[in-house]
Design a protein around this nucleic acid. Structure first.
Lengths: 115, 115
DNA sequence: GCTTTACTTAAGTTGTTGCTTTTGTATTCG
DNA sequence: CGAATACAAAAGCAACAACTTAAGTAAAGC
């Protein structure tokens, strides 16, 4: 819980761009080549490659080259780490609300006895 | 599912910075003033304010000013949207793996009958 | 073997981000 | 009232991000 901040930096940074999120949405539906990933965008191929490099170095996507085609796919552990961080925050936050609720109940009970 | 890209941009962008994530971790444990949020960091107050502004405009945090103290707290719907996007991707991805699994089972069955 | 195709590398441009210092404005306290 | 506190606004700056064009390279097709 203490370290491993850099990977999250990279993952969230990667997810902050709509082009990269769209690429991930496509990859969630199945593997794709770089050209496949590039097709929906009005963008040069090098730009797409750069987005892909960001996705790979963030651990959200992996790829391998067969012949002249590079096939990209989702790296499940990548989104997993992101999910884990968010879930941890929500748990803390909900736990606190629970305690706050108990505290308010307590206050109300005392208030009732004092009224 | 088609629009609302900008809010996610802002949210992920906000989460990409370790200082801002640390602020959210503190806020998950309870509300805090700007000074409270600034204390753990070797950083000027304006820098903290700018991080806070990013967190607010991304919808992850809200704040209100009482007297000269601004109290900040987590905006639960903010993380909710982020969580929803990630869950959607994971569902798509798992669904596809299920279909792939069935397909592979089918292939294996055919293979067995052919062997 | 010569051309497409599919990617890759390099270099340059423009805009944004994450700070900084400086200066200002409300509160609150003595 | 006057000083300390807690935030706020403004301006400047170095680093980085998201492109672009131009110029490769290596596998496939003819």
């Amino acid at each position: 819980m203490l370290n491993q901040l850099a990977p999250l930096d990279l993952a969230f940074q990667a997810l902050a761009d709509p082009t990269r999120r769209a690429m991930l949405e496509q990859l969630a539906r199945g593997p794709a080549s770089v050209s496949d990933l590039a097709r929906p965008f009005a963008m040069s191929m090098p730009a797409v490659m750069q987005h892909l490099a960001v996705l790979e170095s963030s651990g959200l996507v992996c790829s391998q080259k067969n012949g002249r085609v590079r096939t990209c796919r989702i790296e499940p552990q990548g989104l997993g780490r992101v999910e884990a961080w968010i879930n941890a925050r929500r748990r803390e936050w909900e736990q606190r609300l629970d305690r706050l609720g108990e505290y308010l109940d307590e206050l109300k009970t005392q208030g009732d006895s004092n009224a």
